[in-house]
Amino acid sequence: MNNAVASATVALTADEIIVETALGGARYCLPNFNKTINLAATGAGGMDTGTAPAYGYVALYAIYNPSTGASALLAVNATSAVAPSVYGGANMPTGYTASALVSVWPVDGNGKLVAGAQLDREVWIPEVAILTTSTVASTPTSVSVSTIVPPNARAVRGTMVVNNNTVNGGSNASFVGNAQSVGSIRIGTTAPASGAGAAYSFSGLPILVSQTIYYTLTNVSGSGTLYGFISGYSI
């Protein structure tokens, strides 16, 4: 998927998609899949019911009608809960019995899919700031990323920056996946000038608590500031 600007419609292509009637149920292979979703519509090719959420997320399912051989995309409001691997709602279009989750995408305040791109299970979005703090946190402290990544997000990517306000002052920081410091990504700096620091682009930071990451910030000397940015996630 490649969505150049916020839009209600976007196309998804895949070499093939395996859809199922249920986990472990009847399976069908959909080769050369190329379908478009329209969040302004309802039914096959649109929302399963109702309208797209504002400032939320939609899950996209590939759906299949084995009687006619028809396939389509179906969008589901996935703002408040993890979307299952197979469609679990009560509004599947008539005749469509098999499905597979293929994407979960942010929606803006106008009910449009935000600009971004997806390759396999990796989604890229415009970079968003999540954190600016100078408060020392020697143990992991939580930061909600619920307005940036969906409940289905399993890992995030982005950039962390740490600086120090004292010449030769030193600070260390980390992003971690939970309060037990699992999945630690660390950065440190010794500032050659006041306000100088270091930046590090990271990927694969695990989301072990829904829509939440954790950080630490400590100072060897001087006072440090940690900045965090998110630019994508995996589902």
Rank of each mutant, 00 (worst) to 15 (best):
R27C: 01
M47G: 12
L60T: 03
G46L: 04
A54D: 11
P31I: 13
A59Q: 05
G46S: 10
N38F: 00
T49G: 04
I37Q: 07
G25D: 01
P31A: 14
T51F: 01
T49K: 13
L30I: 15
A62P: 13
G25F: 02
Y28H: 13
T42S: 15
Y28W: 12
T49Y: 09
T49F: 13
G46V: 05
A40D: 14
A54M: 09
A40V: 12
A62T: 10
P53K: 11
N34S: 14
A59E: 04
A41H: 01
V58K: 06
R27D: 03
M47C: 12
G45H: 11
G43C: 02
K35E: 12
L39S: 07
Y55K: 13
G25P: 01
L60N: 00
G50W: 08
N34P: 00
F33S: 06
A41V: 02
A44P: 01
G43E: 06
Y61W: 09
G25R: 05
L60G: 01
A41M: 02
L30W: 03
T51Q: 12
A40P: 07
G56C: 11
P53S: 11
I37R: 04
P53V: 06
T49S: 15
A26N: 10
N34Y: 03
I37C: 05
C29A: 15
N38C: 04
F33D: 07
N32V: 13
